[in-house]
């Protein structure tokens, strides 16, 4: 409770500073709207449904792409960890492409798929996939061989070992890879939405883009806040509980 109050106080002070800066009129109100104006915009956008619609469009792209990235990346990571041939080929490719900022996929996606949902999805998948492949591979390689040996003597066989021993043993690595993949996918999707107008749906990035076109700073800041909140929520609702469980089980930290 004390921690919560402290955090609340911190954000209240932030808002006050913002309001104070607005009132000091150092910058034109066009460039720095007041917190109230932003709140009014957000309320309006929430009431007329723009915000909800855009959020749904964006989250659908993100989730579908992310899940595809996971479903493809996890087995690829296992294969690269298991066989040298895969490591030398897909593993090297993954390592290389992971260093490529995923925004760089946007031009290619546009030329290949045009201004379609497929282009968006492609960018998100590329953002997720390579992180997951590399994290899975690293995780599997770090599993102490003694786990496998112990399982073998208890009658565990190849597939059972993979699913009941190696995968769970590699879980801490895999989860941090999933988290990184999520962050990359989220960033690249926002970039893609800002660059590319796709008529099949306006996402949050597009709202941000139009806010700039219309010089509607309260819209720009409002949408940025929404994006931050979604990122925070993904962490708090999805990743944080998993990480807490891992820390508790493995005894890695007092989270």
């Amino acid at each position: 409770m004390k921690r919560f109050l402290l955090a609340a106080l911190f954000f209240a002070v932030l808002l006050l500073i913002w309001e104070a800066l607005f009132r000091a009129k150092i910058w034109s109100p066009v460039l720095l709207p007041s917190p109230r104006q932003v709140a009014v915009y957000l309320e309006g956008a929430a009431v007329d449904g723009t915000l909800a619609k855009a959020t749904i469009v964006t989250m659908r792209r993100l989730l579908i792409g992310y899940i595809i990235g996971l479903v493809v990346g996890l087995p690829l990571g296992l294969l690269t960890a298991r066989w040298k041939v895969w490591q030398d080929t897909i593993g090297t490719l993954a390592l290389g492409l992971q260093t490529l900022p995923s925004v760089c996929w946007v031009p290619l996606a546009l030329l290949w798929f045009g201004q379609t949902e497929a282009a968006m999805l492609f960018v998100v998948v590329m953002g997720t996939l390579w992180s997951v492949v590399i994290a899975t591979e690293t995780g599997v390689r770090h599993v102490p061989p003694i786990y496998r040996r112990a399982a073998l003597t208890m009658g565990s066989k190849s597939l059972h070992i993979w699913f009941k021993v190696i995968l769970p043993a590699a879980l801490p690595f895999i989860v941090s890879g999933m988290k990184q993949g999520w962050a990359f996918a989220w960033r690249s999707l926002m970039a893609a939405e800002i660059f590319v107008t796709i008529l099949t749906g306006f996402g949050l990035g597009q709202l941000l883009h139009y806010g700039r076109e219309l010089s509607a700073m309260e819209q720009v800041i409002g949408i940025m806040i929404v994006i931050v909140v979604i990122g925070l929520m993904a962490d708090k609702i999805f990743f944080s509980p998993i990480e807490k469980f891992l820390h508790r089980r493995w005894g890695t930290s007092q989270a």
Partner: peptide, 21 residues
Amino acid sequence: TGPGRERLVMFQEPALFPWLN
């Protein structure tokens, strides 16, 4: 011919699985 549960091993380091209680 291979490992099997009729001959179980107890290792020097406790090879317990950290993901299970």
